[in-house]
Amino acid sequence: MTTENSHKTPSYTITCRMSHEAAALERLCQVVRIRGFRIAKMAVESSIAGADEILEIALTIQGHRPVAMLQSQLEKLHTVAEVILTAPALVPAASRRA
């Protein structure tokens, strides 16, 4: 039996600024996955800030765990400068599978 709640997975939008080093995106995605979230959408843009190459990443992620936990793990990454979290919304399970 499924409950009303189990049909819905909370979804969050996170924007993240990090330096553009080897494996930068893999590192980010690895943390998102292992901390219990799925990436539903991802947009990446690179830019130059002084001597540094910066990545701006917008992520829509889904997961049942507290997103603050993910945020603090992402903030710990050495190359991550900033993580901004926007308010969650519940996504119906159907659209999750789509």
Partner: peptide, 12 residues
């Protein structure tokens, strides 16, 4: 680099 992402504090 790819193999060790999850077991390091950081890598280069």
């Amino acid at each position: 680099l790819g193999m060790t992402l999850g077991i390091v504090k950081h890598s280069y």
